[in-house]
Design a binder for these strands. Sequence first.
DNA 1: CTTTCTGCAACAAACATTGCTACAGATGCC
DNA 2: GGCATCTGTAGCAATGTTTGTTGCAGAAAG
Lengths: 142, 142
Amino acid sequence: MTNVRFAVAVHVLTLLAHAQAPCTSAFIASSVNTHPVVVRRILGALQRAGLVTGQTGPGGGFRIAKAASKVKLSDVFLAVEDSAAPASHHPNPQCPVGRQVKGLVTDVGKRAEKAFLASLAGQTVEDLARVVRKKAGSAASC
Amino acid sequence: MTNVRFAVAVHVLTLLAHAQAPCTSAFIASSVNTHPVVVRRILGALQRAGLVTGQTGPGGGFRIAKAASKVKLSDVFLAVEDSAAPASHHPNPQCPVGRQVKGLVTDVGKRAEKAFLASLAGQTVEDLARVVRKKAGSAASC
DNA sequence: CTTTCTGCAACAAACATTGCTACAGATGCC
DNA sequence: GGCATCTGTAGCAATGTTTGTTGCAGAAAG
């Protein structure tokens, strides 16, 4: 996979699980090492998935929307990524082998994606936050 | 995933498992519905992985290098794709949370990739070829 | 009504992917 | 030998995706 949205999303959620007060996109961006708008884009996706809430105005920012122990990493993945399955191709429709293979490959990809997501579903943001708390102390800052 | 190399690779190997004689890249390309050079690029990767052999000259072309029942779909995936794990990002090195999370996300991704590949490893090219033979007849052509 | 935020559109730069041309080199056949 | 048929690979254009950035509308708090 080439994009880093999942890694950033997990990073941000772990950060928010740590935090007491709402975090601004500028603060988060300095931890993630990117631009605040990039953070807002990813948090927009997490918001649509019901994982975080954003509040405008002074003292506003983002909060995690529910207990970190209820946020599975598969939820995070699906919030920021369309699919983990390999893409299908477009075989010559006149080739009987090609027609069949296309369907089979799609099925194979879906099964593998399911296994991928099941692995992610075995861990929650809280699991990561616990490790971080232990090793990095409880400071939420940078 | 955005690229279709895995789908094409599986398609081609199923085709080769069917075929009696070597197949030229032009023939394969007409089944896959793409350009012969694209086929040769992907078959180059499969060749480096020891899954197919290519022969130059008249009457040449590509053959499957071993029994289709010994070619796991995970072998095919690894031959044409670097990794199935989500990419990592580059957090601010001064942020203790970011430093920790980066490592954790990498581990999580590797575990999920392992599950993904294990799912693919449960099927071989022969499994697909068998279904195709049943449903599409034994004609290798288009 | 000013300041501090998010939300979003619009754009540029960088990169990945695919299709294509062109050609070097291997190989079989006359 | 000379020719036709292949692979192998470099190079290039077109397209699409991802990321970083600017700019601005609108919500909310004091």
